[in-house]
């Protein structure tokens, strides 16, 4: 039986806009086990990064409700000092853009060293430097001693992302959160970084939350997948089930809108309309309904719930049972310039 590392129960994270709170993460419940990669997929504005930030407690001026149990202890709204003992020690985070994630005025060694220093005051300076160089080697940075003294702008994007990863794993965290770790990188660098994350996970037996919009990355990395739309989870399944048998209309639409390197498609599927903004989210009914208007309103649930259709495979709302893609002729007609 897999060992539960992180358990999120009915989490709501709301941002304050003017005088109202709007939930960017809406009633999300999830678990992450040890030595498991859970991918969270969705487009920008679906709340996947907000979820990651909630776990790390990185939001300010937000309201968080519900529970995030990290090894059984609720970490929602705990004191900053308690949170700081967890962050960087038991939980590490990898950010999207390695070009901005490092302090431009600090040498690499000090930036990684800071993560060690903060959680182990006894470590001597020389020991710390040794450890940082070990870490640099571990993440595959050549000439670690030299890089230790360098500033971020002297390194390439791929190298900087390795530095960010080295910082995140400095204290061998049990939970690693990777927020679009390869989006800013070239494809060959991406595959190296993904391999690195996978190997480190195996080494440390950690749980990984991988936030991404790239289904290819999901297919390569994830053990389980959670699909998010408009702040809610719409589908959860293990990776094989999700790729072979996606159920929710949003999941299916995503799959059909990506140009697939293996298949010939003349036309990509276009999801009608746009992702609603936080203030305009429909708070009742099926949130995806507006984007599949050809599906009759009666097919949606009034209060869509996650249903366990098979052990471990959850889908929100009943509309998936009736979903089909629209007829070709429904596409917009265009007129040429005469």
């Amino acid at each position: 039986m897999a060992e539960k590392l992180l358990e999120i129960k009915n989490l709501n994270t709301s941002f304050r806009i003017r005088d109202d709170y709007y939930a960017a993460v809406d009633d999300v419940s999830l678990t992450v086990n040890k030595n498991e990669v859970l991918a969270i997929v969705g487009e920008s504005g679906c709340g996947k990064s907000a979820l990651a930030f909630s776990i790390m407690g990185l939001h300010n001026r937000t309201k968080m409700e519900g529970e995030i149990l990290f090894k059984g202890e609720n970490i929602v709204n705990i004191s900053p000092s308690k949170l700081n003992k967890l962050r960087g020690k038991s939980m590490g985070m990898i950010f999207q853009d390695p070009l901005t994630a490092l302090n431009p005025l600090m040498i690499i060694g000090d930036q990684i060293g800071e993560a060690l220093l903060l959680h182990n005051k006894e470590l001597s300076k020389t020991k710390r430097k040794e450890k940082v160089i070990d870490l640099l080697n571990k993440v595959g940075i050549p000439r670690a001693e030299h890089v230790y003294e360098q500033f971020p702008h002297e390194l390439s994007g791929g190298m900087r992302q390795r530095v960010v990863i080295a910082t995140a794993i400095a204290n061998e965290p049990e939970l690693l959160i990777a927020d679009e770790p390869t989006t800013a990188l070239d494809v060959t660098i991406q595959s190296q970084i993904l391999d690195l994350i996978k190997d480190l996970k195996e080494d440390m037996n950690s749980g990984v939350v991988l936030i991404t919009h790239d289904l290819g990355v999901v297919a390569e990395m994830a053990d389980r997948v959670a699909v998010m739309y408009a702040g809610q989870l719409v589908e959860i399944a293990d990776v094989h089930t999700l790729f072979e048998e996606p159920l929710h209309p949003y999941t299916k639409s995503l799959f059909n809108s990506v140009p697939n390197a293996n298949e010939e498609q003349e036309k990509l599927h276009v999801i009608q309309g746009i992702v609603p903004s936080l203030q305009n989210l429909p708070r009742t009914g099926c949130r995806f309904a507006a984007r599949i208007p050809w599906i009759d309103a009666s097919q949606h649930e009034e209060h869509p719930e996650l249903h366990e259709v098979k052990p471990g495979h959850f889908v929100r709302c009943s509309c998936y049972k009736h979903f089909h893609f629209p007829e070709e002729s429904k596409e917009e007609q265009h007129h040429g310039i005469s």
Partner: peptide
């Protein structure tokens, strides 16, 4: 070859195969 091989494969069943190939 290396560039094409680095494209993430959309089929999770091919993971091991792709890893080897890469």
């Amino acid at each position: 070859k290396r560039l094409v091989a680095a494209i993430p494969d959309i089929d999770p069943r091919k993971r091991e195969e792709m890893k080897q190939f890469r």
